[in-house]
Design a binder for these strands. Structure first.
Lengths: 194, 194
DNA sequence: ATAAACATACCGACTGGTCGGTATGTTTAA
DNA sequence: TTAAACATACCGACCAGTCGGTATGTTTAT
């Protein structure tokens, strides 16, 4: 394997970037900070990534791809079961990414202001919307859900999830968010299920 | 009128700050920018506000207070009616504050990292939670809502609202958000109402 | 085999510019 | 006249990105 050292440096920079961005935010995390954290020179940084924005984007892509994989693997027998199962996955997500969740917000905020980042965020985002829309349609087809506008139903689900995550970011100790997530989905189900 | 000029300058600075923060975000909006936009010198700025953070906080306070007023005025005969009426108010909120909504996200993000701002955000936020909790309890008492954990029910409502607003920020043209808001609340009601 | 030629990885001082905040001077209103 | 309101010049810190140069492989020609 040629230049495996290079790959390791790349990874170290990426790791450090996650830490610094999560801790201080995109603007406040300087490239110098990231380099110091990674134990690497600025030259190395710019050798591997053309700009600060580029590494931010790389990070985001990785994160979004991860979610994608996790979602695909959650499919169960019936649609309501799948949805409930997904909420059961939430605690793990929270625990694994607790300190990184502000980054999620950061992604969103940057996306709302930066054309490049927006395009990178909006595609997977719409993909999720479609995923849930199809899920709801399947549920209606299999008879476990009431006939309804599947698009709206999907948006409700996504909105609820987004809202829960963001409240979890803002006020982690303000509630038992995993319990709230489970029961919230239950209430939603009462409105959607047959 | 003695300090009327002073008051006007104050207001102009605040207006400009809203515009610049909304357009560029907290970090990217420089004090110089704000002053230029307000047609005022830096000396005037620092005469009226001790720091950049202070003006941001003042802005946030005003915004939160505004929501407070709007919420109190929405009360109708029954609880479900009140909630539906509130979603009907959303389009106005969206239209009036379209370009300022990213600031909402900015507030949130800053709050998740800055102790001072966090405290200023969390108090009104919990106040809303309590408002909705009481609203749900009233609904249960008046018999229009199913008996349920009022706290969780309130959190669902708030989560949904937060999620809808944030999706509206990220992807304004991705859906008809006011319609979605209305129908979402309807679905939720199916799960909550008797 | 091995040295020369080349390519990639990495270093860290430096630049040009920005920004929050301050010091000091001038105007305005009472 | 005097204090508040406002203006201007300036300071020190910081920061993304650059650049000349070095170190560490990798390929090529002999």
């Amino acid at each position: 394997m040629p230049q495996q050292r290079s790959e390791e440096t790349r990874a170290r920079i990426l790791d450090a970037a996650v830490r610094r961005f999560a801790f201080a935010g995109y603007d406040a995390a300087s490239v110098d900070d990231i380099c110091a954290d990674a134990g690497v020179s600025k030259g190395a940084f710019y050798h591997h990534y053309p700009t600060k924005q580029a590494i931010f984007l790389a990070l985001m892509q990785g994160w979004l791809a991860m979610i994608d994989v996790g979602m695909g693997a959650a499919r169960k027998d019936t649609v309501p079961e799948t949805l409930v199962h997904m909420t059961n996955l939430l605690p793990g997500v929270f625990a694994a990414a607790e300190d990184r969740l502000p980054m999620f917000l950061e992604f969103w905020l940057q996306a709302s202001r930066d054309e490049t980042i927006w395009k990178a965020v909006i595609a997977p985002y719409r993909h999720y919307q479609e995923y849930f829309t199809r899920l709801v349609e399947d549920g209606i087809a299999e008879g476990s859900l009431k006939p309804a506008d599947s698009q709206v139903a999907a948006q409700v689900i996504v909105s609820l999830a987004v809202g829960l995550v963001l409240q979890g970011v803002l006020d982690p100790h303000g509630a038992d968010w995993e319990k709230t997530a489970r029961e919230s989905m239950q209430i939603l189900m009462n409105g959607l299920a047959k």
